[in-house]
Design a protein around this nucleic acid. Structure first.
Length: 304
DNA sequence: CAGTCGCCCTGCTGGC
DNA sequence: TGCCAGCAGGGCGACT
């Protein structure tokens, strides 16, 4: 379940091993991961063949590789996607979906006679996918609706605070809304909320500015900590571009910790169902907001 | 039109 | 032992 830090680790791997190389033959082994490419698998392959990879970019959980054609290879890892750089003779992974041959030298250059390499998209559950965007000059239009992420230098904190406080949705739902802030998934949302001592069910409109700033600070802190450890993952499905698995679960304070004592106060971490998934929080440090009723004495608050 | 819901996928786990 | 429900969950189409 890669979130921003894991995707950033993959981006760095692509930058080191794929940028500066040329794509050769492209083989689509399963149609689903290219479903977003409306021209179909053959069109996808044709647009990539013989193209030079110029850069590796990321916004939130999306990655893209601008090409010398002006197009870009756009990708999302979904839940279980991996991008691996492998020697061509390495056996196929069980869930190999797309194979992209690589040629040419990546700076600073390989030794002569190096083995041919492949970029492989491996994805068990196929929530992720690849597509060719016809406009790789800036942010691909397909992801124009994705907001900047908290590690983007141009992310506007004040704008984010205002956007959250305008919304009546629950805070966690807002954190997961990639149109408001990108890169946050279920794990980092729960961790940031725990660190900020805020319950994710609090409506955005009822939060103080300092609360929103605090949770944003904690989102950044937890992401930077994960990045410092080379990316986080909590199951073996996530592997970085070199095929190296990242693990970081010792650092989890809330996510997946149901029944374990809160590290701050000792109260057992609670799990609740939320948006057809799970939320974990400390019932003492992150108290559930009191339910406001219309009969409450003139508080002027809106019932949820 | 903002907000919410359900579906897409596969594989693992737990209960009977 | 075998079967099946439940669970994991990002993103988007569809609906209110």
């Amino acid at each position: 379940m890669p979130e921003l830090p894991e995707v950033e680790v993959v981006r760095r791997g692509l930058e080191a091993h794929v940028v500066g190389r040329r794509l050769t033959e492209v083989q689509v082994l399963h149609p689903r991961p290219v479903r977003r490419h409306l021209g179909g698998a053959d069109d996808f392959s044709g647009l990539l063949r013989d193209r030079l990879v110029l850069a590796a970019r990321r916004r939130g959980k999306y990655l893209w590789l601008p090409l010398d054609s002006g197009d870009a290879l756009l990708g999302h890892l979904g839940m279980s996607g991996q991008l691996l750089v492998q020697p061509s003779q390495a056996p196929d992974e069980r869930h190999l979906r797309v194979r992209l041959g690589l040629s040419g030298a990546a700076p600073p250059g390989p030794p002569p006679g190096e083995q041919p390499l492949e970029l492989r998209f491996v994805d068990q559950r196929m929530f992720g996918g690849l597509a060719v965007s016809r406009d790789g000059a800036d942010v691909p239009p397909e992801i124009a609706h994705i907001a900047r992420d908290p590690l983007d230098p141009l992310f506007d904190d004040d704008l984010f605070v205002a956007a959250v406080r305008r919304r009546s949705s629950e805070l966690k739902r807002i954190l997961l809304d990639q149109g408001v802030v990108s890169g946050i998934g279920n794990i980092y949302a729960d961790e940031a909320l725990w660190r900020a001592r805020l319950n994710g069910s609090r409506p955005g409109t009822r939060l103080r500015r300092d609360d929103v700033r605090r949770v944003l600070d904690e989102v950044r802190a937890v992401m930077l900590a994960a990045l410092a450890e080379g990316g986080t993952s909590f199951d073996a499905l996530y592997v970085n571009v070199n095929g190296e698995s990242g693990y970081f679960d010792r650092s989890l304070h809330a996510y997946g910790q149901e029944g374990r004592p809160c590290e701050r106060c000792g109260a057992p971490i609670t799990r609740v169902s939320f948006m057809n998934r799970s939320s974990f929080y400390c019932p003492r440090c992150q108290p559930v907001p009191r339910v406001r009723r219309a009969s409450a004495t003139g508080s002027g608050t809106t019932p949820v």
